[in-house]
Structures are given as structure tokens and as C-alpha cells.
Nucleic acid binder design. Structure first.
Lengths: 227, 227
DNA sequence: CTAATAGTGTCTTTTAGACAATATATC
DNA sequence: GATATATTGTCTAAAAGACACTATTAG
């Protein structure tokens, strides 16, 4: 057990990232089979030790972990909480700073190449240590706060159509929304901006107009959009 | 610098608590002069090292720190964020899990006995390390999310009158509220419950009815109450 | 009487959001 | 014509909150 300068034992510090994505309208989390002990062979969240020699701060740790373990770069992450327990990690007293990320499934290709897989967020199966509990907390967050925010947009590529956007909101909120009212509010609130382009392919019917998020208005949104 | 089982350096882990209270209608934070280095003699937040030998988890650490450094027990705390930086602590790479607490000033007597003092939350003066930044973040939280929640109630004793309650909300929100509308909403939303008792003393005028928070409805509240 | 608190009534504005159409574009 | 998307109109219900009172109780 490590010891800090004043002679007290100091905890192990790790970072774990709950990466959410949307697959077929269902919320999924990214997990990977652990390559070494503890819990070798068991699926767990993307995470790793804080390396004080190479990371300047926790943000660096998250970036390094996402890059090396899931091939992901330039990911927007949000700190969720810090969990701790004498018994949560077999190597001893440990502390994990948990982050959350949301990515469109199209951007997860590098992660899949590195062996990451998707599990249903509401039932990820057996995960290492307290990772099931962590996923539960993160899911609560994305569903609760997320539904009445611009969070659902994060699941989409940079450009998206109105029907795609509505589907993303419906998936996150878990309920159907009125088409005309949804459209009106998105536009009126200035949450999205037309890109000038149109949908590339559509089997039949009118081509959808493409939009992008109005970065300017991020965080402006609050509740609303219930049904 | 401590080293963890796999040979990487591991950070120093501490906990810091931003304790808010209301004095004369102004938001204040509890700080104390630091008894030892680093920043000995400089004022800082109530905080301390995680002691893995005596604390089972971070909640234990917070409890121990509040008890030993401020004489406070049974304090409701909320985890705010975890800050980190190679340079934030002179002893090396450190990580601080920041908690927030809100207490009526009446309950801070033990803290004052231990040398704690109050500083204006919006301008706490020079504090050790990154504690000024931490206070800024906490204040943003209590003002932003807090104003449209039951947070202002935390500043009051268990029993309080309607005028007291309104004053607390006004202090946190930084604006005047309409008396009749305020009263109506508090009652209608069931946020408070009559205790059956009356105000003990009043220089002149009618005695106020005393209420207590309806624990049942905590967290039910959301925005509203603008003016 | 004065002053503080308690309580009622009402009006305006905003918002959510439900519902019903119609219009347009594409195969 | 079938289908998906875009767009407009309208209506209801709820909520926020501003304002003007009246009522009650205490010194």
C-alpha cells in the first residue's frame, strides 16, 4: 500500500469512463474485457490508473485512457462523480473518478477494433468491481437531466435531420413526442442551425433538411418536451 | 512520491468541504487558517488527507475531517467535483474530492470555537492553493441550481417561519420575491409542513407560524420562483 | 394604533404540448 | 400515388408571477 509524505497510506487512484451511444434506438454502454487482474476476463468500463508521471491532471488521464484503450480522441467528457471504497478494488483502498461521454455509434469504430463491445445501458450484464453501480448512476443522469437538455444531440453525428433528432430525443426520454411541436421548439429555441445540405439518401419520400447543433445555445435548454 | 502496486506513481488524495451559511442575508463560506504547511498561516477550506487506514470510503473521510477540524457532526454533504493538478499542491500531484455543505449559522458554533471564520462567498479573499477557484465553482452551483430547489431551506434551522424562509430564498437568489405568490407556492407544492408551534418572540406584530421542510418532497422542486 | 404576518382573489403572460390539417418533394 | 418530411394554425391547460387587497394577531 502506497504511503504519502506525512506517513498516511494513500489510496489507489483510477479513472473510469461510461461511454454511451445509441444503437437501434437503444441506449448502450461501451465495455471491454479486462486484459489483466483484477477481474481479468470480466467485462468492465474503459478505465485506468492515474499516472502522475505522464498526466498533468485528471483530464489528461481520461484522454490517455480513451486513446490507448479505445482508440478515441477528441471526446467530450463530463465528470460525474468520484466513488471510493476500501473494498471495491482487490488491490486495496481505491478511488475512481468517473466520467461520462456520449458518442454517435459511427465514431466508435476504433473502439470496436480494440475489442470494445456494446451492452444495453439498462442491463449491462455482469461487470467488474462496482462498474454496474457506476453505469446505473450514469444512466440515471443521462435519462434524468439529459432528456430536458441538448444531451440527446450528442448521440448524433455533426449533421443530422429533424427526424433523426426527434428519434434521439425519443430514445433518451423513452417516449414518443409530437412531431410538429418538437420541430417548432427546436427551431424557436435556436438549438439547431440549418447546414444548407439535404439528406443524402432516402428510400422514398421527401429529402430531409440537415441541421447541426447551435454550439452557441448549448446549455440554454432546460426542461420542457414532456408529453 | 508514493507508488502503487504496478509501479506507477499515485497521487495524493485529499478531501475539501465548502461549507456555506447565511449571515445577515449574505452567503458566507467557512474557512480556517492552516496549521501546517503547505500554506501554513493562510486561510483555506476545511479539508484533509484521505486516511486509508481509518476511513472506509470518502464519506468517512469527510465525516472525520468535519468532526476533527470543525467540530461538526451529522452534516449533510453533497459531492461537487474532483479537482486535480500536478502543480496544485506543493507536495506533488494531488487530487481533491470537493464536497459542499450548507448549515444554518446557529449550528456553526463548534466550528467557530475551533478557529473557523466566515468569509463572503463571492469574495473570500486569498485562500490556499486552488481553494478560491473551488469556492467559485461551489457558489455557482448553489446559486444556479440552488435557487430553484429546496437548497435555501438548508440554511435555516429545522423550524422556521414563512418570512424567514422567504428571506433565505431571496438571499440565495439575490432578488426580492412576491410575498403572496411565494407563500402560495411553498404551500401548494407541499414543500413545507406546519409544526403547530408559533414564533417565540417578535418585537411587534403577529406571531409567525413555524414550519419545517417536508423531507418527503425534497428534490421535487425544480425551477420556478423567478421574478 | 401600528406593525408584522396570514391569506384571498384575480389578471396577464408564457409555455407545453396536443391535435388537425396542409404543403412539398421524392420515388 | 405512396411516402416521408416540412409547415401552419389553433386550442387547451398549467404555471409563473405581478398586483391589490383583506384579515388576523400581537405589542
Amino acid at each position: 500500500m502506497p504511503t504519502h509524505p506525512f506517513g498516511y497510506d494513500t489510496p489507489i487512484a483510477t479513472v473510469d469512463v461510461v461511454i454511451f451511444t445509441l444503437e437501434d434506438g437503444e441506449l448502450k454502454v461501451v465495455v471491454a474485457e479486462r486484459q489483466r487482474d483484477p477481474y481479468k476476463g470480466v467485462e468492465g468500463l474503459i478505465g485506468g490508473w492515474v499516472h502522475t508521471n505522464e498526466d498533468r491532471n485528471l483530464a489528461d488521464t481520461v484522454e490517455r485512457v480513451l486513446r490507448t484503450k479505445a482508440g478515441l480522441v477528441d471526446v467530450f467528457v463530463e465528470q460525474l462523480a468520484t466513488v471510493s471504497d476500501a473494498g471495491r478494488h482487490p488491490d486495496g483502498w481505491s478511488l475512481s473518478v468517473v466520467y461520462m461521454a456520449i458518442l454517435p455509434i459511427e465514431e466508435l469504430a476504433p473502439a470496436f477494433e480494440k475489442g470494445c463491445v456494446l451492452r444495453p445501458a439498462s442491463d449491462p450484464g455482469r461487470l467488474a468491481m462496482d462498474h454496474e453501480e457506476i453505469v446505473r448512476i450514469a444512466l440515471e443522469r443521462v435519462r434524468g437531466k439529459g432528456a430536458y437538455s441538448t444531451i440527446p444531440m450528442e448521440f448524433l453525428p455533426d449533421e443530422f435531420s429533424m427526424p433523426q433528432l426527434q428519434a434521439a430525443y425519443e430514445s433518451v426520454m423513452g417516449e414518443k413526442l409530437d412531431q410538429s411541436s418538437f420541430r417548432r421548439r427546436m427551431i424557436e429555441r435556436g438549438l439547431i442551425v440549418e447546414t444548407g445540405r439535404r439528406e443524402i439518401q432516402s428510400s422514398t419520400g421527401r429529402k430531409a433538411v440537415m441541421y447541426r447543433a447551435n454550439e452557441h445555445r448549448k446549455g440554454t435548454f432546460d426542461r420542457s418536451l414532456r408529453r
